[in-house]
């Protein structure tokens, strides 16, 4: 079982969270011409790396906040967790 450290609540079991996918995907900016390719990349295309992956989780059965988790997709090791609005260096 994964143990995820919610930045708001502390270490909790995976059972309390739901997964939200790749956190590096950015929605095309508003009020700008957006090409089909840009929409395509936003909606469908994913890098899905083997190794370090920054991803969204929601602490659904806890504080209900969305958080970011840096996790290894090959070993399942969790390196760091961030608040959703936290800048990541």
């Amino acid at each position: 079982m994964l143990h995820i450290k919610c930045p708001h609540c502390g270490m909790r079991s995976q059972n309390e969270f739901s997964y939200g996918g790749d956190a590096t995907v950015k929605r095309p900016e508003l009020n700008k011409e957006v090409t089909d390719q840009e929409w395509d990349n936003f909606v469908y295309n994913r890098v899905s790396p083997r190794g370090k992956h920054l991803e969204l989780w929601q602490h659904l059965s806890g504080c209900r906040q969305w958080i970011k988790v840096e996790r290894d997709t090959a070993t399942h090791e969790i390196f760091r967790t961030y608040k959703a609005n936290e800048e990541i260096a």
Binding site: Q14, S18, T73
Partner: peptide
Amino acid sequence: DGYNSYAQRGNLP
């Protein structure tokens, strides 16, 4: 299991 993974082994939940 619900999250991106390349590990060919699962989790109990």
